[in-house]
Amino acid sequence: MQVKDKIVIVTGAGSGIGAATAKHFAKHQAKVVVSDIKKEKAQKIVDDIKANGGESVVITANVAKFDEVEQLIIKTVEQFGRLDVIVNNAGIGPKNMAKTGEYTLEDWDSVIAVNQTGVFYCMKLALQQMMKQGGGNIVNIASLAGLKASLNNLSYSASKFAVVGMTKSAALEYATKNIRINAVCPGYTESALLDKLLSVRPDMDQMLKSVIPMKRYGLAEEIAEAVVWLASENTKFITGQTITLDGGTSL
């Protein structure tokens, strides 16, 4: 995939899909900014990339804080001179899954702040930089929960539906500006969020697999391949799309 020497930011890159995506970009010779709220986790990913001959740095940021996202973009441009790609992956789930009438204000506010407002902050500031330099590419990590109903998971579902909408709206706005914006919608994928769910409800494992035609969870590396492909020069005529990677679940 054609991403050699592209300057790439991946948010929430300390683990899961974000970490796999950062490593996959580096494998294809992009220069990767590994951003995460936890510096130690991000540094481990950078160390791994460097050990395999790649170029990578850590810039910590809480995407729910505008000033920290602003510094993420500024520091990236100061170090590398431009920003070619941003992957808006940082995301969280609620502490408690509950029906809408019993949903806590804390879970609503915290999830929306990271998953929806955080993506807006990253898109807003990345787009400003990309307009200055004459182009760029944004890949947002949405979810199958942003395409279909998700029980007892209101804030997460709302935030991911929002990411799909923001992706399409912004893609339309910037289609003539050499800026492409797409999203990937993973289904049930091996990740910290899934681990958290299964730790609370171990009985969910077989139930979830029973609704996946492939009878298995996705791998973070499989999602990463789609992200890097969308960010590459191989997909110049693709914008405003949501690519669903769910083992057939949506069928």
Rank of each mutant, 00 (worst) to 15 (best):
N137P: 05
F161I: 02
I212P: 00
Y188W: 14
Q206G: 14
A170D: 00
S191Q: 08
L144V: 15
V164W: 09
N153R: 12
I138N: 11
I181N: 00
A145D: 10
N153T: 04
M166I: 06
N182S: 09
I212F: 11
P213A: 12
A142N: 00
K196F: 10
A158V: 15
L154Q: 13
S150W: 13
Y156E: 06
S210V: 02
C185V: 12
L147Y: 00
A162L: 13
P186R: 09
G187P: 06
K209R: 15
A183E: 08
Y156I: 06
R201H: 07
S143K: 07
V139L: 14
A192T: 10
S191K: 06
L147D: 06
L154V: 01
L208F: 01
S210R: 14
N137I: 01
G136T: 01
G146I: 05
I181K: 03
P213E: 03
Y174S: 04
G165M: 08
A142G: 05
S169L: 08
I179P: 00
D205N: 12
P213S: 13
V139W: 12
N140R: 07
D195F: 04
A171F: 02
M204V: 03
L172Y: 10
L151A: 15
M204K: 02
K168P: 07
A142K: 01
L208M: 15
K196W: 03
A170V: 03
A183P: 01
V200Y: 02
N152H: 13
K168W: 05
S169F: 08
G134R: 13
L193T: 04
L197D: 05
L147M: 12
G136E: 00
D203A: 12
S143W: 13
Y174E: 06
D203K: 06
A183C: 11
A158W: 09
A149M: 03
I212W: 09
G165W: 14
M214D: 10
R201G: 00
M204E: 11
I212S: 10
Y156R: 11
S143H: 15
N178K: 12
N178L: 10
F161C: 07
V211P: 08
L154T: 15
S159E: 12
